[in-house]
């Protein structure tokens, strides 16, 4: 088998293992949007892929140092693609307001007064819930009833503020 073919097959397998491992850990911990869990699952999958590559070299695939570079690079790139496609899906599942709204409506029998939705999603309690999620993710600290940016969150906010400027986007969110 060519190094490239082997890398893509093996990388696909490890990308699937990454998704299932994250799903299992998320179910166990109940915090699927926990960035640290996702990153650790991904790092372990990369390590697993590289180990597979090394263990099966000479058995299922052959090649020189350049072939190693091709195989490792292609496999890791494939897994990175799986990562960037999977992570937004997890965030939509766990924290999309639009999804929250649809599910709330479904639970209420399919209809709710507009004002009830605003009370649920646009009130101080809704803001507190979101701020708490961000605090648990290490983006905010709570000091004297005020939520304060951590340095990590300040860097993130700065980056996205610059992106909004670069792409000429409205202030909205």
């Amino acid at each position: 088998m060519s190094p490239f073919t082997f890398a893509l097959i093996s990388g696909s397998g490890w990308a699937a293992i990454f998704v299932f491992t994250h799903l299992a850990l998320a179910r166990a911990a109940g915090v699927p949007r926990h960035g640290r869990i996702i990153i650790r699952c991904f790092a372990l999958s990369i390590a697993g892929f590289l180990t597979t590559l090394a263990a099966l070299h000479g058995k299922l695939w052959q090649g020189s140092s350049l072939a190693w570079l091709l195989a490792a690079g292609s496999g890791i790139l494939l897994m990175a693609c799986a990562f960037v496609l999977y992570v937004p899906l997890v965030f939509v599942i766990s924290s999309s307001l639009s999804v929250d709204t649809l599910i709330l409506l479904e639970r209420a029998g399919g209809r709710l007064p507009r004002v009830a939705l605003y009370r649920r999603f646009a009130a101080a309690e809704a803001a507190r819930r979101r701020l708490e999620i961000m605090r648990k993710s290490g983006l905010l600290t709570l000091e004297g009833g005020r939520y304060r940016l951590t340095p990590k969150a300040a860097a993130l906010a700065q980056f996205f503020a610059e992106m909004k400027r670069l792409w000429n986007l409205q202030p909205g969110g």
């Binding site: 924290s95 101080a124 803001a127 701020l131 961000m134 005020r146 969150a153 909205g172 969110g173």
Partner: peptide, 26 residues
């Protein structure tokens, strides 16, 4: 960048003089 709810809160906090806010202020 265009419609991230949490990110918009972070950007607002960054622009706030105290870089902090209460839920009511948000």
């Amino acid at each position: 960048a265009s419609r991230g709810y949490s990110l918009r809160i972070l950007i607002d906090l960054l622009c706030h003089p105290q870089t902090s806010a209460t839920p009511e202020e948000v």
